[in-house]
C-alpha cells in the first residue's frame, strides 16, 4: 500500500505539473525516479515537520498540490498547529501521506505507534481523512485525489495487506462500501463498520461468525471524514448489534464518529454498540503489528468472539 501510494505521486506528477512531493528525512532514494524526472518538484527536507507543513501551505496558496510524507505520529502530533492553521484554516489542497498509521511501527514503541491520528485529524474543520484497506484501493483513491479542494490525511498500512476491496466499486471520497451482506443466521444482522486494514480482519471475523450462525454486514469506510451517513443509517436501521473496528484509540476515532452520527438521529436507529480498537492507554509493548492487535483484541478470532459474546447476551435478554 505504501509503495503504491508513493509511486502514484510520481504518476500524478507526470500528469499534472502542479504536483509536488515533499518528504521529511525519509529513506534514501525515495521517489528517485521522480527526482530525476522532475528535480524541481521533488523535495527531501530535514527533520522539521512544522516547517515542511507550512512550506507545503505556501506552495498550495500559489496553486501547487503538494503530497507530503513522513511517519504518521510526526505528521500529526509534532505539527498539529501547522496542520490546523496553515492547511485546514486556509483549506488548502495538501495531501498528508502518513507512514505507519495505527500499530505498524509496533517494534519502535509508543513514540511511533499512531493510535490517535484518525481522531485528531478528524477533529479539524476542512480536513478529509482516508484509510484505504489495501494497495488496490489506495491506487484507486490516489487516482482521484488530485482535484479534491481541501487537505487530505492519508493513512498508510504496512503493506502486503490482502486485497479485500473490489475494483468495480471504484473510489469516491466520502463513500462507504458494503463488502459483505448479512444473510440468514440465528440472530438479526450484526453490522461491522471498519476502516483501513481492519476491514480485512472484519471480513475474516464475519466469515468465522457465519459458521456460528451469526450473519454480519461489513461496511468498509475508507473515508472516516466526511462520513457516509446514508449508508450507515441504512444498515444500522436493521442491525441488532453495531460493532466498529479500528486500528487506533477508541477515543474519538471511527467508532466515535459512527456512534455520534447515529446517536444524533431523532428517529432512533442506534443499536447496541461495541467499539473495538486500542483502549485509552499507551501500548508499552513491542513485537509487531499483529502482536499489538492481538493485545488489543483486534485479530479476526478475537473480533468474532467479542461479537459472539455480545450476541449471546442480547439473545438472552
Amino acid at each position: 500500500m505504501r509503495k503504491t501510494c508513493i509511486d502514484m505521486v510520481h504518476a500524478l506528477a507526470k500528469r499534472d505539473e502542479r504536483v509536488v512531493f515533499i518528504g521529511s528525512d525519509l529513506s534514501p532514494g525515495l521517489l528517485a525516479e521522480m527526482k530525476q524526472e522532475f528535480p524541481d518538484r521533488h523535495y527531501m527536507e530535514g527533520v522539521a515537520e512544522a516547517n515542511f507543513v507550512g512550506m507545503a501551505a505556501g506552495m498550495a496558496m500559489d496553486g501547487l498540490i503538494p503530497y507530503i510524507n513522513t511517519i504518521a505520529t510526526f505528521l500529526t502530533r509534532r505539527c498539529y498547529e501547522q496542520v490546523a492553521v496553515d492547511l485546514c484554516l486556509h483549506n488548502l489542497p495538501v495531501r498528508l501521506i502518513a507512514n505507519g498509521g495505527g500499530l505498524v511501527y509496533a517494534p519502535l514503541g509508543p513514540t511511533h505507534v499512531a493510535i490517535e491520528d484518525l481522531a485528531i485529524m478528524r477533529a479539524l474543520p476542512n480536513m478529509t481523512v482516508v484509510a484505504p484497506a489495501d494497495a488496490e484501493e489506495m491506487r484507486r483513491f490516489m487516482e482521484i485525489s488530485l482535484d479534491w479542494p481541501g487537505p487530505i490525511y492519508i493513512r498508510l498500512g504496512k503493506g502486503g495487506d490482502p486485497i479485500v476491496t473490489r475494483e468495480a466499486d471504484g473510489f469516491e471520497i466520502g463513500k462507504a462500501y458494503h463488502l459483505r451482506e448479512a444473510n440468514g443466521g440465528r440472530f438479526g444482522p450484526v453490522l461491522i463498520v471498519s476502516t483501513g486494514v481492519m476491514t480485512g480482519r472484519a471480513l475474516s471475523a464475519a466469515e468465522e461468525l457465519a459458521g456460528d450462525g451469526i450473519a454480519c454486514d461489513v461496511l468498509h469506510l475508507p473515508t472516516i471524514k466526511p462520513l457516509d451517513g446514508s449508508a450507515l443509517q441504512r444498515l444500522a436501521a436493521k442491525a441488532r448489534l453495531l460493532v466498529t473496528v479500528e486500528e487506533g484509540t477508541v477515543v474519538g476515532g471511527l467508532g466515535s464518529a459512527v456512534v455520534e452520527l447515529l446517536a444524533e438521529r431523532l428517529e432512533g436507529g442506534l443499536p447496541p454498540v461495541r467499539r473495538l480498537g486500542v483502549p485509552d492507554v499507551f501500548l508499552h509493548d513491542y513485537g509487531d503489528q499483529d502482536w499489538l492487535m492481538e493485545r488489543c483484541g483486534l485479530q479476526p478470532h478475537q473480533i468474532a468472539k467479542t461479537i459472539a459474546d455480545a450476541v449471546n447476551v442480547l439473545a438472552a435478554a
Binding site: 523535495y43 512544522a50 516547517n51 515542511f52 507543513v53 507550512g54 512550506m55 507545503a56 501551505a57 505556501g58 506552495m59 498550495a60 496558496m61 500559489d62 496553486g63 501547487l64 503538494p66 501547522q82 496553515d86
Partner: peptide
C-alpha cells in the same frame, strides 16, 4: 516564514 519559503519556491 515556512509559508513564505513555500511561496518563494512556488515562484
Amino acid at each position: 516564514l515556512s509559508i513564505g519559503v513555500g511561496m518563494a519556491l512556488a515562484a
